[in-house]
């Protein structure tokens, strides 16, 4: 292990380390802590300039209920779920298939198609913006959650294919060869042999895609407008415009919007990190 394990050092170093840990953490999260603290201040405190002093009252409940009652935050959150969940299903399903095809079969153009997926995944969004917007308008899905779902599924296919293909490639090939000798058909191999082995990859990708899509802001502003279809990232931006200097509400809203991916991360941490490292850092 590097650096030297702290338990092998003298008692002084150990206690310095143990005190430093929480201090560094607090400094690191300071901006976030500030937001959390602001979210339970009263509006009166902010008007009188009492931003960092002891709050005159703790309005945790009032602020969070008022954010839901007086703004369409709940609708924005609902829209985010309506976009994110179908996208996760779609992107994972499609990439299981593309990943399988690219990992198991040797055919002409295999590497070319694989690289096409990888390259597409890194492209700047702006080069897609105008045509994708036009396409959504033509298909009649512009300004609906479907505009976002379809685009996100297609775009995430790039990253997901890279991930799935590498995962399947690392599975023992003999399994597939043996099944073929037994006369099992290709679809059955995919469904009964490979898919069950892909569970960890599917879990990792699902958590990761959930977070990516939930946090998307660019496409939310390009493909949707208005309360009926906008996800919470774009919604928060427009609320921020209406809530000028009502920071206690902005901060409560921000915290609510950040909650689903944060909960996802804490419950599925192991899968999340496996996904982030692209499976490449073993």
């Amino acid at each position: 292990m590097f650096p030297k394990p702290i338990e092998n050092t003298n008692i002084l170093t150990q206690s310095v380390y143990k005190t430093a840990l929480p201090i560094v953490l607090i400094l690191w999260l300071l901006p976030l802590i500030a937001v959390a603290l602001t979210s339970f201040r009263s509006g009166g405190d902010l008007i009188s300039g009492n931003y960092w002093g002891w709050p005159t009252s703790f309005d945790l409940y009032e602020n969070y209920t008022s954010v839901f009652k007086n703004t369409p935050l709940a609708q924005y959150m609902w829209n985010s779920f309506r976009v994110t969940i179908p996208t996760v299903f779609g992107a994972v399903a499609l990439s299981c298939m593309t990943g399988f095809a690219l990992a198991v079969y040797n055919f002409k153009g295999n590497i070319l198609i694989f690289f096409l997926f990888i390259a597409g995944n890194f492209v700047p969004f702006q080069i897609l913006m105008v045509p994708v917007r036009d396409l959504s308008v033509q298909m009649g899905v512009y300004n609906s959650v479907w505009a976002l779902i379809l685009f996100h599924i297609a775009f995430q296919a790039g990253f997901c294919t890279l991930f799935m293909r590498n995962f399947i490639k690392a599975l023992p090939r003999e399994l597939i060869e043996a099944a073929r000798v037994e006369g099992v058909n290709e679809f059955q191999i995919f469904w009964y042999i490979v898919i069950p082995l892909m569970k960890p990859a599917i879990a990792a990708l699902s958590v990761l895609i959930f977070t990516f899509i939930w946090n998307d802001y660019f496409w939310a502003t390009v493909l949707t407008q208005g309360v009926d279809s906008q996800p919470v990232t774009a919604g928060l931006y427009s609320l921020n415009g209406q809530w000028i200097s009502q920071w206690h509400l902005v901060s409560a809203g921000s915290i609510v919007a950040a909650l689903p991916p944060v909960l996802m991360f804490f419950t599925m941490q192991k899968h999340f990190i496996a996904g982030l490292t692209l499976g490449a850092v073993k």
């Binding site: 298939m97 593309t98 080069i127 105008v130 396409l135 297609a154 775009f155 290709e186």
Partner: peptide, 29 residues
């Protein structure tokens, strides 16, 4: 032959969407 056709069937939906929403728009822009 089966091994030649199968990968394309598996890839068809993903590849089709990817071309429509990523590759083609690059050319479009």
């Amino acid at each position: 032959n089966k091994l030649k056709i199968a990968p394309w069937l598996f890839m068809a939906p993903g590849l089709l969407m990817f071309i429509t929403y990523v590759i083609w728009p690059i050319a479009g822009s």
